[in-house]
């Protein structure tokens, strides 16, 4: 019987340069899991997936009801920073997941992506994979909230984002910034899962400011 589902995807950079903060990120994912799994109102409506990317992109956690997940697999720092592989894999996953949810009779809210990277893309042509993902011709195109750390170019993060963009301001260490990112992601899922729009469906809620990050104005893209 149909349910209302709001799918969240975490797309996280696992390149070698993430080594310093990867443990904090994994710790943050553990806290996110505990928070969502223990909130039945939010768990009833949200699903969560993790895709890690470096030289390639890998689904670390398929779209899941976190109340049914024992542990979120950890991220591992390695290799380069291929944005194109991440966006292609993300589109495939969204297509597959939305198709399955619809086949199961569910009502699917527009998917939400939290994207995090700390470096410039090492692949060429990622922009076309991104354009395919966010094009209105793709019915399940997601809303993307993008976060940038360290060396990533501010304009790159603004190009990736379609909803909100944040850039680490250098005022805190990368480890602290990753913890704040994970905390912001958790709050967004909880608030989105418990805030209803005019249609009675969950609606995306993202903080206007995240400690350690500067919000980037998307209208200047």
């Amino acid at each position: 019987m149909s349910e209302q589902v709001l799918p969240f995807y975490l797309v996280c950079d696992e390149s070698g340069s993430m080594t310093a903060g990867i443990d904090d990120m994994n710790d943050g994912l553990g806290k996110l899991h505990a928070e969502i799994a223990n909130n039945p109102v939010v768990a009833d409506k949200t699903r969560f997936a993790v895709i890690g990317f470096s030289d390639d992109a890998e689904v670390l956690l398929p779209l899941s009801d976190l109340a049914d997940v024992e542990e979120i697999p950890g991220l591992t720092a390695k290799g380069g920073t291929c944005f194109g592989a991440a966006f292609k894999r993300l589109k495939q996953e969204i297509q597959k997941d939305v198709g399955q949810l619809k086949a199961d009779g569910h009502s699917v809210l527009r998917p939400v992506v939290f994207f995090l990277s700390d470096g410039q893309a090492t692949d060429r042509g990622w922009e076309s994979a991104h354009a395919d993902l966010v094009s209105p011709s793709f019915p399940a195109y997601p809303k993307i909230v993008a976060f940038g750390l360290e060396q990533v170019d501010e304009n790159t993060i603004k190009r990736v984002a379609t909803f909100k963009a944040f850039m680490a301001d250098g005022g805190v260490s990368p480890a602290v910034a990753l913890r704040e990112f994970a905390s912001s992601l958790t709050k967004s899922i909880v608030r989105s899962g418990s805030t209803l729009a005019g249609t009675g469906a969950p609606t995306l809620q993202v903080e206007d400011s995240v400690p350690g990050f500067t919000s980037l104005p998307l209208d200047q893209i």
Binding site: K102, S107, V108, L109, R110, A140, A197, G198, T199
Partner: peptide, 12 residues
Amino acid sequence: GTEEIQDTLTAA
């Protein structure tokens, strides 16, 4: 039938 993806706007 319902839409492919449910968006969340309403007149008010």
